[in-house]
Amino acid sequence: MTTQILIAGFGGQGILFAGKFLANKGLLEGRQLSWLPSYGPEMRGGTANCSVVLSDQPIGSPIVTKPDVLIAMNLPSLDKYESAVVPGGVIFVDSALIERKVRRNDVKAYYIPATKLAQQNGIPTLANMIMLGKVMRECDFVSYEGIEDAVRTVVSAKHADLFDVNLRAINIGREIE
């Protein structure tokens, strides 16, 4: 099975970090994977996106043009990528920042007020991880099992103090019905 994931939003929302988490989780599970960031003169407030491919076979293109899973963290991203999602795919929308609904009927959509939840829980920079918690609840391309190891890997030793909050954010997302 191959899963193509596209995470998109503003720079500073932790788009690339969320992708790195999935990539590391995949690595720990012994999967094949690729992680590709958009790069360029992008900065906080600009747009950022990140392609992650997880597979049991060697990965062809690392560029996700037809995502199975889209995580949209702002409106421009939903506008831009909604139509690219494969029929039967899944779209996760940060409904705290995106007011509109997904327009397509052939995809599944989840609305998570991640940015609001992050603020309410005193972890304002971790809406990205709340989104991932929900993703892990609804999808099975990576397993929740071994989540601590993945968080530990992606939160570098230098920032070990951020381990707990990242884990908490994931769990907040995971508990959303």
Binding site: K20, Q32, S34, L36, P37, Y39, P62
Partner: peptide, 10 residues
């Protein structure tokens, strides 16, 4: 190229 340079893989 920029893609292979920027991407992460195991």
């Amino acid at each position: 190229d920029g893609t292979v340079g920027q991407m992460m893989e195991p």
